[in-house]
Write a protein that binds this DNA or RNA. Structure first.
Lengths: 227, 227
DNA sequence: AGGGAAAGTTGAACACGGTCAAATAATTAA
DNA sequence: TTAATTATTTGACCGTGTTCAACTTTCCCT
């Protein structure tokens, strides 16, 4: 088997069946309580079949997170086509992820396991997720594209907003207020703050400070190449 | 047995033996590779004895993190007694943790497992670690105590610096430069930036903005009661 | 001193994530 | 069509974290 372009080969179908069974069970019993045996049973395959398609139980969640990311890109692309208002765009960028994550807060929290373990293949900050980070920052770059920005801010802001989103996402998982209004309000406040600071930060007087910050972050190898 | 004031009872000794054996093995083989059986063997007790003292393997790391926290408090108390220079104090607050964590970056990263799982008993942002967070923020409050600050900044800054420290700590774990110079440089830059912004932020003109931010964070229930 | 409760200790057993070699099905090349 | 190759599937097995009921030791109270 060399070609893998045409979708829904036998294997893809099996993978999908397992994936769905897993998500169902995770939602019913929680991630830890659901066992691979249960998942395989519900998908009507052997346990080892599940491991043929997913390297580990956590990998299934990772796949789900990627699906969420793709859906977010779609949603944002739509909104960005409709409005050129910065505030609205930033709102879409942040809240779209919230909307998609809302019903699976318990599940998606698993993505943050191994955050502190650089060597782990599923570390959300490790090389394995480089592409996911890039895609996430691209959303913010696109959101900002209606604004005429100095070069340095153009490099700085996607990173800053990505970090903001990661932080808010964690808060979101802890937020038990209805509809996670608490975190959503915080996000709105952060957007307001950002937009306000933006007009300030653009002033040429602040150029040296921006340069200092950018240099610092660049030396820490944190500024990404978004292409 | 009701009294538990006098230390080094039989139990405390056993606990210590297990704790040391565990840390040794974690350092030799890594956290995941080291098995509870090995730990028990090295400590010359039954495997279940380890579980009498530690609820889980991760709990041992948690205990270690608490020890690190205590050591940091000690170090900072010393420095704070010696210098009233704000920059020096903030430097001590951040770098003391780095210094203590330096040789066990792989181990301490485990503390961040379950960050995204509010219900998990070991979640580093959950209720179980409320006291640890408080202690960590107290260090920053003490570091700032040489400065005459408006009330709102006094409430805001410990939280902000704690968050900064958490973020930097994660970076620290990923930092492979010698002595983690990269992250340390970033920390120094952040301190410089903070001190500079502080004199600006203190200006009464900015009071309304500070109030807005504080209100936002207070509504999000993020402002701690440090007592 | 002695009896009883609490603290400490143990080995056996369980449950589940993960591995593997072997079997079967699908696909390609000839 | 057939043989070789690759993709998929399987059941048996393993290692390890965790639990538990029973046993032993320690300590307190009278």
């Amino acid at each position: 088997m060399v070609k893998n372009e045409p979708s829904t080969t036998k294997g893809e179908q099996t993978r999908e069946v397992i994936y769905r069974a897993a998500l169902d069970l995770f939602r019913e019993n929680g991630f830890d309580a659901a066992t691979m045996q249960q998942i395989a049973d519900r998908a009507k395959v052997a346990k080892s079949a599940a491991y043929y398609y997913f390297a580990s139980k956590e990998t299934i969640i990772q796949a789900y997170y990627e699906a969420v990311q793709s859906a977010q890109e779609q949603l944002c692309a739509d909104t960005f086509g409709q409005s050129k208002k910065l505030k609205k765009r930033l709102h879409a960028a942040l809240h779209s992820k919230f909307d998609l994550a809302q019903n699976d807060r318990k599940l998606l929290g698993i993505v943050f396991r191994y955050t502190g373990e650089p060597a782990h293949p599923l570390s959300c900050l490790g090389p394995a997720n480089h592409e996911m980070r890039r895609r996430s920052m691209l959303i913010f770059r696109d959101a900002l594209s209606v604004e005429r920005l100095p070069r340095d801010l153009e490099e700085l802001l996607p990173l800053a907003l990505w970090a903001l989103q990661m932080g808010l996402l964690v808060l979101f998982f802890y937020d038990e207020t209805p509809n996670q209004q608490r975190t959503r309000g915080l996000a709105d406040g952060a957007i307001e703050f950002t937009v306000k600071m933006l007009s300030l930060a653009k002033l040429p007087v602040l150029k040296p400070i921006r340069a200092k910050v950018l240099d610092l972050l660049r030396q820490a190898d944190l500024i990404p190449e978004l292409g």
